[in-house]
Amino acid sequence: MRDTLSGEKVTIRAHMPAHVAPLFAAVEESISDLAPYETWCHPGYTKTEAAEYVDWWRQSWEKGRAHYFAIECSSTGDYLGSCGLSELLKEHKRASMGFWLRSSRTGEGLATDAARMVARFGFEDLGLERIEIESAVHNAASRRIAEKLGAKLEGILRKRLILPTGPTDTAMYSLMRDSNASV
């Protein structure tokens, strides 16, 4: 199973201890953009929390429960964010995809490129048939990424997430192994 994939703009690699400090810096820069949509991200986020996430991602990878990648700039190696697959249901060949990108690098297509590579990893390396992308209905940036990947909107799920703003409806998108030519 591959732990590193490279593209023209981004390289994705399994998280490692060296990612703790750059992860912390990226989150610290992006709190105002991430906190409304991510329960783990909050004002006062600490380096200890960043280390705990990297450790969790590594343990989950080793146990086959989740596969999260650091997104790095291919030309500079800078840490840009994270993208991965979790909620793996091996017997149903299904997983959920999540992603985020540091605020200073949004709008360049980097998250879409990383998500495309993670989807390929899911289909080719993990043998998945279905990848779900669920986003708060008002998170236009995440929904745009799902649409750029060619994911199909399946519906709106009412009060599906409890975010800092309260119960939130989500848009459920799906990518299928055989029907997503852009992945």
Rank of each mutant, 00 (worst) to 15 (best):
D3W: 13
L5N: 06
G7W: 07
G7K: 08
K9N: 12
K9D: 12
I12T: 04
I12A: 02
I12L: 11
H15W: 06
H15V: 01
M16L: 08
M16K: 11
M16S: 14
A18S: 13
A21R: 15
L23M: 14
A26E: 02
V27I: 15
E29S: 12
E29M: 04
I31W: 09
S32L: 04
D33E: 14
D33C: 10
A35R: 07
A35S: 13
Y37D: 01
Y37G: 01
Y37Q: 03
T39G: 12
W40I: 03
C41H: 07
H42S: 11
H42V: 09
H42A: 14
P43K: 13
Y45F: 15
T46Q: 09
A50T: 07
E52Y: 01
Y53M: 14
V54R: 11
V54N: 09
D55Q: 15
S60F: 01
S60T: 11
S60V: 00
W61I: 01
E62T: 11
K63Q: 14
Y68D: 06
E72D: 08
C73V: 00
S74G: 02
S75Y: 02
T76W: 09
G77F: 13
G77M: 09
G77W: 09
G77D: 04
D78P: 00
C83P: 04
G84E: 03
S86P: 00
E87D: 13
L88M: 12
L89E: 13
L89W: 12
E91T: 09
H92W: 10
A95H: 06
S96V: 11
M97A: 07
G98Y: 07
R102L: 02
S103T: 15
R105P: 00
T106L: 02
G107V: 05
T112M: 08
A114S: 05
A115D: 03
E124R: 14
E124T: 11
L126T: 05
L126H: 04
G127R: 10
E129K: 12
R130G: 01
I131L: 10
E134R: 15
A136G: 06
V137I: 15
H138F: 07
H138M: 03
N139R: 06
N139M: 02
A140W: 01
S142Q: 08
R143H: 03
R143N: 13
R143I: 03
A146N: 09
K148N: 14
K152G: 05
G155D: 06
L157D: 01
R158T: 09
R160A: 13
R160P: 00
R160Q: 15
R160N: 15
L163C: 08
G166C: 08
T168H: 05
T168M: 03
D169T: 08
M172Y: 07
M172E: 03
M172T: 04
M172C: 13
Y173S: 02
L175I: 07
L175N: 11
D178R: 11
N180D: 12
N180A: 14
A181R: 14
